[in-house]
C-alpha cells in the first residue's frame, strides 16, 4: 500500500513538472520570438521567424532604432523623471508614515484613512483636471510637473507601506531616542529609516519600474517631444512604423534592456520586495 501511495504522489509531481514546463514555455516563446527577431533583417523575420541562425544576424536594426529613438536623450529623460519622483516619494512618504505610526492623534488617523482610500483612484479620473492644474501652474512640459504627478499617484501606497512597517518597530526604540534627546526628525533619520531599508528598496523598485514603464502620465503631461521618456518615445515611434517589424522588435528589446539589467543585479531584492509590497509582515 505505501508503495502505491508514493507512486501516486510521484505521478502528481511529474504532472506538476509537466504543467510548469508548459507554462514556462508559454512565457518564454514570446520573449524568444522578440529577442531573436530584433537581430534579423525584415526579410528573414518574414521567412524564418523562429530560426536561430547566424546567417540572418544583423545589428543594423539596433543601430537604426538607437538613432530614431534618440536613445541616450530618451534614457536620460526617463532617469530624470524616476529620480525626481522617487526622491519626493521616499522623503515625503517616510515622513508621513512616521508621523502616523508614532503620534497618537485622531486627525492623523483620519488623514491616513483618506490616503488609503485614494489608492484606488484610476489616473483617468483625474487626468483632465491634472492637465488644467499643470497648465495653470506652468508645470506642463516640465520634468518637475510630471514627477509631481508620478509622486502623488504613488504616495498613498508608499505611506501605507511605511506606516505599517514603522508601527511594527518596538516602541522602546522611539522612547529611548527621546530620552537621549533626539527630536522627531532625528528619530526618523537615525533610528527608523535605517530599519526601513527593505521597505525603502521595495518602494524604489516597485514604483521606480512602474514610473519607468508608464506611458499614460508622460503622454498627458508632455506635449513637447524633447521631454519624452523612453517608453513614450517608443510608443510614438512604433505607432508610425507598424509595418517595419525589424525596427519594432529592436525597439522593444532596446527599451527593455535597462530594466532587465537592473533585475539581473537586484533579483533577490526584487522578489523579496514583492512580498513586502503584498503580504504585510
Amino acid at each position: 500500500m505505501p508503495g502505491q501511495k508514493s507512486r501516486r504522489i510521484q505521478n502528481m509531481h511529474i504532472g506538476g513538472h509537466i504543467i510548469l514546463i508548459v507554462v514556462a514555455t508559454i512565457i518564454l516563446i514570446p520573449l524568444y520570438y522578440v529577442f531573436i527577431n530584433a537581430f534579423k533583417t525584415d526579410a528573414a523575420i518574414n521567412l524564418h521567424p523562429m530560426a536561430f541562425s547566424l546567417d540572418y544576424f544583423t545589428t543594423a536594426n539596433m543601430a537604426n532604432v538607437w538613432r530614431l529613438l534618440a536613445f541616450p536623450k530618451a534614457l536620460l529623460n526617463s532617469v530624470i523623471l524616476v529620480v525626481i519622483s522617487c526622491s519626493i516619494l521616499i522623503v515625503s512618504g517616510s515622513m508621513a508614515g512616521f508621523a502616523i505610526a508614532i503620534v497618537n492623534n485622531r486627525l492623523l488617523k483620519t488623514l491616513y484613512i483618506i490616503l488609503i482610500l485614494l489608492i484606488s483612484v484610476p489616473f483617468q479620473v483625474i487626468m483632465i483636471s491634472i492637465i488644467q492644474i499643470l497648465s495653470a501652474t506652468k508645470l506642463m512640459n516640465n520634468y518637475f510637473g510630471t514627477s509631481f504627478v508620478f509622486a502623488a499617484v504613488s504616495m498613498p501606497f508608499t505611506v501605507f507601506l511605511y506606516t505599517g512597517f514603522m508601527r511594527a518597530v518596538p516602541r522602546e526604540l522611539c522612547e529611548a531616542a527621546i530620552v537621549d534627546g533626539c527630536g522627531m526628525g532625528q528619530t526618523l533619520l537615525r533610528i527608523y529609516l535605517p530599519l526601513m531599508k527593505i521597505v525603502t528598496s521595495t518602494i524604489l523598485i516597485l514604483r521606480g519600474t512602474g514610473i519607468w514603464n508608464d506611458l499614460l502620465i508622460p503622454l498627458v503631461t508632455f506635449t513637447n517631444e524633447r521631454y519624452d521618456p523612453l517608453v513614450r518615445r517608443l510608443y510614438s515611434f512604433a505607432s508610425l512604423r507598424f509595418n517595419r517589424w525589424d525596427l519594432l522588435f529592436a525597439g522593444t528589446v532596446l527599451c527593455s534592456i535597462p530594466i532587465l539589467l537592473l533585475f539581473l543585479f537586484l533579483q533577490r531584492v526584487f522578489i523579496r520586495g514583492l512580498l513586502v509590497g503584498s503580504v504585510k509582515g
Binding site: I88, V91, S92, G93, M95, A96, F98, A99, I100, I102, V103, N105, L107, L108, L111, L115, L118, F148, A151, A152, M155, P156, V159, M184, L188
Partner: peptide, 12 residues
C-alpha cells in the same frame, strides 16, 4: 507630526 505629513498631503 502634522507638519511631517504636510509634504505628502501637499502632493496628494
Amino acid at each position: 507630526g502634522f507638519l511631517f505629513m504636510l509634504p505628502a498631503l501637499f502632493f496628494v
